[in-house]
Design a protein around this nucleic acid. Structure first.
Length: 150
DNA sequence: GCCAACGTTGGC
DNA sequence: GCCAACGTTGGC
């Protein structure tokens, strides 16, 4: 089983929205590295942190599970959608998404500032300079450490 | 295939 | 809102 950190802007979709919806397609991935990762490495039952980005307090807000493995992201076919991509077709979809399922909110928010303060977490992608991938893998060691300081 | 220009991400 | 870092595009 693998562990992940998945970023989203809370103004767009937050952990509270997921709590209400319970299961939600994680659409809008338009980066090849991330697509390959969800296609090849992400499995049903994997666990993920829900990370709020581009907001007042960036950090880890909740836990979720991967509920459905990668399948075509239909928002890429929709001309009116924000993430429409003319190069993606139903016959040969360029972009994929997974479904995530709400598990729980964190007992307290683990802020990016705090993640950066822990020497043990310096190999986490999300604390590294210039990291812009919206989904990154988290090692078991780091996953467990973060839950232990929650 | 190089690389400048441009677009996007996301912390601050 | 600024801007550094990175990805993508497209001319050559």
């Amino acid at each position: 089983m693998k562990f992940w950190l998945m970023k989203n802007e809370p103004e767009d979709y937050s952990i509270d929205d997921l709590k209400k919806d319970v299961i939600e397609p994680w659409d809008g991935i338009r980066n090849y590295q991330v697509r390959n990762m969800i296609r090849d490495d992400m499995k049903k039952g994997d666990l993920a942190f829900f990370y709020h980005s581009n907001c007042e307090t960036p950090g880890i807000y909740g836990l979720m599970t991967i509920h459905k493995e990668a399948y075509p992201d239909h928002t890429a076919f929709d001309k009116k959608a924000k993430y429409y991509d003319i190069k993606s077709s139903k016959e040969k979809p360029t972009w994929l998404m997974v479904d995530v399922k709400y598990k729980r909110k964190m007992k307290r928010v683990i802020t990016l500032t705090e993640l950066k303060e822990h020497k043990k977490l310096e190999d986490m992608r999300v604390v590294q300079r210039g990291n812009r991938l919206s989904i990154t893998e988290v090692s078991k060691k780091n996953w467990e450490f973060i839950l232990s300081i929650e």
